[in-house]
Amino acid sequence: MTKQVITANRLDDGLAVFYGLDGQWHSSVSQAACVEKGEAAENLLANASNEENQLVVVGPYLIDVCGETGTLEPVRYRELIRTKGPSVRPDLGYQSN
């Protein structure tokens, strides 16, 4: 089973964010709502892309993840970098917190 979460960039500052079960956007992928690829994922994406969310984020899309709730990690390296920050600047991005 492929697990997916929804990510986007926040509208006002552009930072990478993840769509939570509470319908809010979070800065940590571990707080993302994780669903099975397919209909459940598409339904979640439809919610995340509604008019209200378009005032909060830009371009929501689904990404594959691995791990369990609380320790979720994107599968693709590109997305992993988004959850952390530039690999060459550990002092920048979420990884610096």
Binding site: A16, G59, R78, R82
Partner: peptide
């Protein structure tokens, strides 16, 4: 974009 503003991986 016409004003040089891109949206990249981490930010604008």
């Amino acid at each position: 974009l016409m004003n040089g503003v891109y949206l990249q991986l981490h930010a604008y």
